[in-house]
């Protein structure tokens, strides 16, 4: 398992470094992040439970541990 993970973790190191380098400036990063967030906000109401107040009120847990 450890060996297999090593291969993957090395490849993810490389891919994230490549991704970081490919972003030429902070403003590009900022614009991309803003666009991603706007996309999320556009679709978020379809993801959320319909009656927020009732749903949040009904979410009651017993203490655990």
């Amino acid at each position: 398992m450890a060996e297999r993970i090593q291969r993957k973790s090395n490849s993810s190191v490389e891919s994230s470094e490549v991704a970081t380098e490919s972003l030429s400036s902070d403003s590009d990063t900022g614009q991309r992040l803003r666009a991603e967030l706007d996309d999320l906000l556009d679709e978020i109401d379809e993801v959320l439970e319909t009656n927020a107040e009732e749903f949040v009120r009904a979410y009651v847990q017993k203490g655990g541990e």
């Binding site: 949040v56 979410y59 009651v60 847990q61 017993k62 203490g63 655990g64 541990e65």
Partner: peptide, 15 residues
């Protein structure tokens, strides 16, 4: 839900 609180004073753990 993989969280630790119901927002009403009840907590459950991730140890």
């Amino acid at each position: 839900y993989k969280n630790n609180s119901d927002g009403k004073g009840n907590s459950y753990g991730c140890h």
